[in-house]
Computed example of a mutant assay.
Amino acid sequence: MKEKRLQHLEDYIHSVGTVSLDELCEYFNVSKNTVRRDVNQILEKGTIQKVYGGVTSVTPALIPFENRDHTNHPEKVKIGQQAAALVEDQDLIFIDSGTTTRNMIEFLPSSQQLTILTNSLDVINAAVAFENITLITIGNRYKRKTKSFVSIDDLHILDKYNISKAFMAATGVSIAHGLTNSDILEYEIKKRIAEKAQTLYLLADASKFGKSTQLTYAPLHEVDVLITSGALSEEYHSFCREHRIELYICK
């Protein structure tokens, strides 16, 4: 329980940036002595530092989308390859916008008949070359920053699709705040897709963990399959075991 509380506390500090000890006491409903002890343990990791009356996150800032494709690229390709191997013939899948999810397309077998639902320009451009793929696009406004189509006038239009698998991206992933992103228009689509899909896959390289942004589109425990790279903390391994999340780590 203590390890879980420490992880939640650290995730919360990273999500808000700077926070007072009094605010931590109120948010987690614990005494100031408990908060001080927990904070002192986290300080030893070097991911936070003390400021007057509280603490602040010193975790590197989240990388802007336009620069993410150059970050951890080999890991993202491996994650995309593993995700593609989990797609089956006749699947109707959603592929989210993101610099990791778009790597799936080149690894999808041409022998499979697939339907891909997406709002990602990169996925659309890659998928049009494959005759075995039926492509359905969503979103009626183009967002250049993330190369995605956002905003749907009636989100219930997504309900008519029987999505067998949703391959999702996230700007940040944490136990406390789940799968997060920072755009309200993308959030609405992600949230509805995550609720609708029969199986929810999260594709996220190891650098995304322990971070969060303003909007949670799904709690972490709702993920069915987690595909990542590198080593995760024991806290995340325990969480996956507890919630029966299938874990793939691409070396």
Score class of each variant (00 low, 15 high):
128 V>H: 05
132 N>K: 02
140 N>P: 08
31 S>K: 05
123 V>C: 01
147 K>H: 14
77 V>D: 02
144 R>L: 07
64 P>T: 02
156 H>N: 14
133 I>Q: 02
155 L>W: 08
147 K>G: 06
111 S>W: 02
153 D>G: 14
56 T>Y: 05
29 N>D: 14
41 Q>C: 08
69 D>W: 15
104 M>Y: 08
109 P>N: 02
82 Q>M: 13
140 N>G: 15
60 P>H: 10
112 Q>P: 10
77 V>T: 02
148 S>K: 01
35 V>R: 00
106 E>K: 09
77 V>L: 01
156 H>C: 09
101 T>M: 01
161 Y>L: 07
53 G>P: 11
49 Q>C: 13
30 V>Q: 09
124 I>L: 11
151 S>Q: 13
136 I>N: 08
84 A>W: 05
148 S>V: 01
48 I>S: 03
96 D>Q: 09
128 V>Q: 07
159 D>C: 03
141 R>F: 13
74 P>S: 12
105 I>Q: 04
119 N>A: 09
119 N>P: 07
134 T>A: 08
45 K>Y: 11
127 A>F: 15
44 E>F: 12
96 D>K: 03
48 I>T: 01
128 V>I: 15
86 L>A: 07
129 A>D: 09
30 V>H: 10
154 D>T: 13
57 S>T: 09
36 R>A: 04
59 T>Q: 11
80 G>K: 00
131 E>A: 13
136 I>P: 06
84 A>M: 00
136 I>G: 07
87 V>C: 05
141 R>V: 13
112 Q>S: 14
122 D>V: 09
140 N>Y: 11
156 H>A: 12
94 F>V: 08
105 I>E: 06
110 S>H: 12
57 S>G: 03
47 T>L: 02
68 R>N: 02
47 T>A: 02
147 K>L: 14
154 D>P: 06
40 N>S: 15
134 T>W: 04
31 S>E: 04
90 Q>S: 07
89 D>I: 06
64 P>F: 05
146 T>G: 05
58 V>G: 00
133 I>F: 00
117 L>M: 06
97 S>Y: 13
102 R>F: 15
41 Q>D: 12
116 I>F: 11
85 A>T: 04
51 V>C: 05
142 Y>D: 04
36 R>F: 04
63 I>M: 12
59 T>A: 11
148 S>Q: 08
98 G>V: 00
98 G>A: 01
36 R>Y: 08
117 L>V: 10
32 K>D: 13
104 M>C: 10
153 D>K: 12
72 N>W: 09
103 N>I: 01
99 T>D: 00
44 E>C: 06
155 L>Y: 07
